[in-house]
Write a protein that binds this DNA or RNA. Structure first.
Lengths: 209, 209
DNA sequence: AACAACATACCGACCGGTTGGTATGTTGAC
DNA sequence: GTCAACATACCAACCGGTCGGTATGTTGTT
């Protein structure tokens, strides 16, 4: 979810540099395989600085999920599709933006929270909860538009909340399939994949009249 | 993907015991966080046995993906939905089976290959490739039925291969969302989530006449 | 304006334990 | 006697985390 640098300010404090290093390294290697020393080296700070700002590696994981959530949340909140008059257009606008973001190597568009929760859901409840908040926060931002689009459509037996979850599930699954493929071609396959999500919503939420 | 014991024979050789321990531990903790010592302890064998059968931890990862692929492949190949006359019913039968398998704690229905590739896609190409083979093998098994159902429908602009990929993406994404939720309730939410996949296929692949 | 008291940010050597991996047996089937 | 299938003992590198210390504010008192 969400590309790299241009959307986040250059980190200045040691804390921000460590979180930015966390985004980079967790995307590439996952959380467990990323050591505190690696984070410090990448951030250009010492171990003393690390444990001054975070009481443990786990605490950095939690902060990283929150940092990620705040960055992506702000980015999507400021996207122009919100100004479209039709709620369905706004939903499709979100999906189109997600499709447009799928470019470059996998580690530049994958989701930090989705990667972390995979490894930590049983071993660290704080990290699990922080990742849940991150992903479900993204879903919640879509829910109002989905509810409005749903009301105008003839669809039965589906809730806006469930549809919002579905968007996130397809995104996360797309990232995993992109990881199995690897390389630059993964982005194109991933874009095609999200086309199915778009099509489902087009058909399901088509206005009645 | 695929539940625990009842579908796999009880392991006898040290190699199989280690692979079975791998399924268990990787699902719970991921690949990096699982140590060789833990695998040996769980399997009830010594380190000597481990490195007798696998030349490295990475080699076990590759073998684990293959073992997983073989187990799940055999299970789905023997499922009764294959005998349904209508190809769309076979596709929906597969999805219904996947829905039925979503029960118990997350680590009892999540996918070993999907978990491993997340951590290893950049750091170990052999593991990445083995996980790709596992997941795409599952997709390939669906492709014929999807092609047949597609031919009877009026759907345009979609390929059977792309739809098969979509099934796997939604499954993998569903597992990740279940991990964020945690606990026993995750299975129910996951079943509801797969309902969207079913609905998409019902609508999209509805026969013309 | 001067100064003590305290807070914040950071450094890097060091610790005990764990890591993946190796070298060298032992044992039992053919 | 040979060889696969293990077991035991061990190693160097690395792990997350601690600790004593320093430099640079900030703040309240007089």
């Amino acid at each position: 979810m969400i590309p790299n640098q241009p959307f986040r300010p250059a980190p200045v404090s040691a804390r921000d540099k460590l979180l930015e290093a966390g985004v980079y390294l967790v995307r590439k290697q996952g959380f467990s395989a990323t050591s505190v020393d690696q984070l410090c080296a990448r951030a250009g700070v010492t171990k003393g600085a690390f444990f001054h700002h975070f009481e443990s590696k786990e605490a950095l994981g939690v902060a990283l999920a929150q940092y990620w959530s705040a960055s992506t949340g702000a980015f999507f909140a400021s996207a122009p599709f919100h100004h479209l008059p039709d709620p369905l257009d706004r939903v499709l606008g979100y999906i189109d933006l997600r499709i447009a973001l799928l470019a470059g190597p996998v580690e530049s568009f994958s989701c930090v929270a989705g990667t972390m929760v995979q490894e930590a859901f049983l071993t660290s409840d704080p990290i699990r909860a922080a990742c849940q908040a991150s992903i479900m926060g993204n879903a919640a931002a879509l829910e109002q538009d989905l509810a409005a689009a749903l009301a105008r459509s003839g669809a039965k037996g589906v809730t806006a909340a469930s549809l919002a979850r579905h968007v996130q599930a397809v995104l996360q699954g797309t990232f995993i399939l992109a990881k199995t493929e690897g390389g630059e071609s993964a982005a194109e396959t991933a874009r095609e994949e999200l086309g199915h999500l778009r099509r489902y919503f087009e058909i399901l939420l088509k206005p009645l009249n």
